[in-house]
Design a protein around this nucleic acid. Structure first.
Length: 568
RNA sequence: CGGGCUGUAGCGCAGCUUGGCAGCGCACCUGCUUUGGGAGCAGGGGGUCGCCGGUUCGAAUCCGGCCAGCCCGACCA
């Protein structure tokens, strides 16, 4: 490829709407352009990177027995009605009708259709199967952001495993874990595997691959001691305990005019320290007002409520419905004496005494509350957000909490979709059994962005050779015949050696060419200039670290080819 | 959905308060010079000022409505 004829629209300035490093650099480097919120066109450079990521994914899926499919991106609504997801994933799904008035949708994922195809399996002898494809998904996310990190339209590698039993699923799950680890390592990422919430998909084991990054959207808790790692949506810990002072007798009401927050209540004295308050939150769960209690200095994780209660239908209560049920507004709520409403309490409240909570009367609170005696807890459920420094549930060491990008997710589906779609086989004894499924996803674009987040510097992207749009650039500086001939020769030599090379034959000043090569992030650059050429040398510069070596023009291609081969 | 902000040339922005020829830098085209880290000089092309409506002799500017995008939160397979 000759740079002068390539469409590589680099920008000198950062785009105004880009914040994350990957967003900024992928736009500036001419890899992507935004079409609308959450939708990006891949330009030639971006497509080349994506193709390399996809090739690595295909190789590793092949290594664990994956067979590649390509399923449609427009599905009939009827199929999604059979799984129940026509309604349950309503919000992010784009639905429309064809000319005959048939309900259609843009695929947000492909469990249903793969399961439908799996209905053609009929014998345990045909199992296990591992099917996958790389296909567009469209999810009408409420808030796309950060370039390719969170988009509405994206390419995903999703694979689905089909087994007779849980043991088979375990093997496929382990195979995916290993394959994903190799995929990420080959693309220059070092993710941490964390326990995750299964979300609405259902299923038991769920592991996310997380790359630590400030641009991430998830928080994970990790223990350096024993290796415990979990998404904050699921992580547990042992919080610092609070010493209760003695209080005899029943709870006592005391006036707290204008007090609506934990912080304001703390001003009343040590007995009302945040850790000695009971925070009372009112949620509407499956249409029913439900109280959720935590320690005053703890935060609720709604995903834990969703997982623990087994429903997705959860929202904070509106002030009017709360007032009607409890006689007070948020800020003065409490569960003492409440009957008729489900009360869920975090285990950190177990056995606590002499606590402070709302009196269900505006401007009044209660003190001297003994949880076990005064509150009718229907269910103890860990709903508390883990905070940095709290004890690891495994070994007690302090937990670290950091932001991360979810680059992959694997989980065990079970039989939900096989049952809905009639994917059953006969086992050895001739009994009909639903196929046990697993589901495994990697976002191609998000992985590209994650690589950039992990590999860039002030000048631009520093692609690992494995996914770089080009492996080497030949940069002639000067337009004299000797320079041009030498540069062309090295360029041809690279191509002959199988190196993906681009010749920067533009009539630009050296500074422009160097800056573009570094912005775009090409791992190796051969600089050919009259000055060094007169001494019988050209320069080979490695993008990472800008390490420079010299070589005779005749040897340069071989030097680069060897270096590139070592890093592929 | 709540809060904040922004829409003016391909990109980055000024102009808007106080209505009166639509500007600047980069990029682009032509010529000359220059050539190892984003060149200089000269000339030139490029605009539904997000859209619709209103006020006004006159609207990028004032008023109303709408649309789009970004950030924080909520939400998120």
């Amino acid at each position: 490829m000759r740079w002068s004829q390539a469409f590589i629209p680099t920008l000198r300035q950062d785009p105004a709407d880009a914040d994350a490093a990957s967003h900024r650099l992928l736009v500036r480097g001419g890899f992507i352009r935004q079409l609308m919120s959450g939708s990006y066109s891949l330009l030639p450079l971006g497509r080349r990177v994506a193709a390399k990521v996809e090739r690595i994914i295909r190789e590793e899926m092949g290594s664990i027995g994956g067979q590649e499919f390509l399923l449609p991106v427009v599905h009939p609504g009827e199929v999604w009605r059979r799984s129940g997801r026509w309604d349950s994933v309503d919000e992010i799904m784009v639905k429309f009708r064809d000319r005959r008035g048939v309900d259609l949708l843009l695929a947000v994922t492909h469990e249903e259709i793969f399961a439908l195809l799996a209905a053609e399996l009929s014998s345990y002898r045909q199992l296990p199967q591992l099917w996958y494809h790389l296909q567009t998904k469209f999810r009408d996310e409420p808030r796309p952001k950060a370039g390719l990190l969170r988009v509405r339209e994206f390419t995903m590698k999703d694979s689905y495993s089909f087994d007779l039993d849980a043991a088979g699923l375990d093997r496929q799950f382990a195979n995916h874990f290993a394959a994903y680890t190799r995929i990420f390592r080959r693309t220059g990422l070092e993710p941490i595997a964390v326990q995750a919430s299964s979300g609405v998909m259902g299923g038991s084991e769920s592991v996310e691959f997380m790359v630590p990054s400030e641009a991430g959207e998830d928080f994970v808790a990790v223990c350096r001691g024993c290796g415990y790692a979990a998404n904050l949506e699921r992580a547990t810990s042992t919080p610092a305990s609070v010493e209760d002072t003695l209080w005899e007798g029943p709870p006592e009401r005391f006036p707290t005019p204008g007090v609506r927050t934990i912080a304001a209540l703390e001003a009343f004295g040590d007995f009302a320290a945040a850790g000695r308050q009971i925070k009372t939150m009112a949620y509407v769960v499956d249409g029913r007002l439900t109280l959720v209690l935590l320690r005053g200095d703890h935060e609720v994780v709604e995903q834990k409520l969703i997982d623990g209660l087994g429903t997705q239908d959860i929202r904070p209560g509106h002030p009017d419905e709360i007032g009607e049920a409890l006689g007070a507004l948020p800020g003065s709520l409490g569960a003492v004496g409440v009957t008729g409403l489900p009360v869920i309490a975090d285990p950190s409240l177990r056995g606590r005494g002499n606590m402070v909570t709302g009196a269900n009367r505006d401007d009044w609170h209660l003190r001297g509350v003994t949880v076990d005696r005064d509150i009718a807890v229907d269910r103890w459920l860990d709903v508390r957000r883990v905070e940095p420094g709290e004890g690891c549930p495994g070994c007690g060491e302090p937990l670290e909490v950091f932001k991360a990008i979810e680059v992959g997710h694997i989980f065990k589906l079970g039989t939900k979709y096989s049952e809905a779609m009639g994917a059953r086989v006969l086992d050895e004894e001739g009994r009909e059994r639903p196929i046990v499924m697993g589901s495994y996803g990697i976002g191609v674009g998000r992985q590209m962005a994650a690589v950039v987040e992990a590999h860039h510097d002030e000048a631009g992207i520093v692609w690992p050779v494995s996914v770089a749009p080009f492996e080497a650039v030949v940069t002639p500086v000067g337009s004299d015949d000797a320079t041009t001939i030498a540069a062309e020769g090295i360029y041809r030599g690279l191509l002959e050696r199988g190196v993906e090379a681009i010749l920067d034959d533009r009539e630009e000043r050296p500074g422009v060419k160097f800056a573009d090569a570094e912005l775009v992030g090409i791992p190796y650059r051969v600089t050919v200039g009259p000055r060094r050429l007169a001494q019988g040398e050209v320069e080979v510069v490695r993008r990472r670290g800008r390490e420079t070596q010299t070589a005779p023009p005749a040897a340069a291609a071989a030097v680069v080819a060897a270096a590139v081969a070592a890093e592929r």
